[in-house]
Amino acid sequence: MKRQLVSCLRHGAAALVATLAIAALPAGAADAPPPANVAAEAIGAGLVQPGNNANAFREARRGEDQSITFAAPPDRVLIQSQGETWRQMRNGPITQYGGWAIVVMFLGLVVFYAVRGEIKLTDKRTGKLMERFKFIERLAHWSLAGTFVILGLTGIAMLFGKHLLLPLIGHTAFGYLAWAAKNVHNFIGPLFLVSVLLMVVLFVRDNVWQAIDALWIRKAGGLLSGEHVPSHRFNFGEKTWFWLGVVFLGLMVGTTGLILDFPLYGQTRQDMQLAHMLHSGGAMLFIALSLAHIYIGTVGMEGALEGMKTGYVDETWAREHHEYWYREARGERIPDNAPRPGHKASAAH
């Protein structure tokens, strides 16, 4: 960004000086060979010079007022300086911070697991089951999860494979692998976006703000203390993942992916660069956050995976982790947040 700004300023300044210099010359001076002293001055300033290509290239670099007779390439400028910015972003922050975000999250979870261990149920299981996720909800979740994992792995192969895999398996094998990864990525991508949309439609209702969420924030979800903080169907942690992960990152990565995937709708290179930066940057964050989600949904918490696998959870689990949801399902009224009309249906047997 800074580089770009600096180069903008530089170009701007050069253009300004050039205009002034041209204005200062007597009319017609550009055609006739200029007197020696004028030429020398102009050379000193690196400006108006007959037969100096540098001027033409500098003009070209500004990217304005250019045309091309053969219309094959999608953009008509001679030099697109934005490419360099994109290169710096991709090979710099996106690769490095993105990579570190994933590594740090992974290590953080390993440490967390070592310290906290699995969050177990405090009471015995009752053996009575409650429906937590309907079939269509599980379908949406698992198709999102499946496509996410495939896209994540193939995406990582394309961003980091050059450093991780290529030295191990060599150019030829990695070439085939990357080719497969790219095609899988391109064909699975749209499916991912469909799953995201389905998820949003199905889950948005239970992910709106509810008064009890304030308590969850105050107690940091009881993650460290081990305390059970009551919540409705989804607690604030799950809601954060829904809004930040599924809705924001999911839609952003999904739509920018479409822009990259179908390049035939008049996108310029600059559109592609922007889309790619949002896509890969967002994806890095998405992958890092998803590790935490996967952790808490599998080894991190007893009974969590069951719910998404079978659709049913034990009543004890429901009471301990989503107390208000449990009580609502049993027909109780929650004083500070009366159930909305029709809400009970989702939890009924």
Partner: peptide, 22 residues
Amino acid sequence: HDKDLCIGCGYCSYACPFGAPQ
């Protein structure tokens, strides 16, 4: 460049200042 390895991702064309890769 080696066309046997190229996967057609288009990145080179995003980065190239001169619009050379097509």
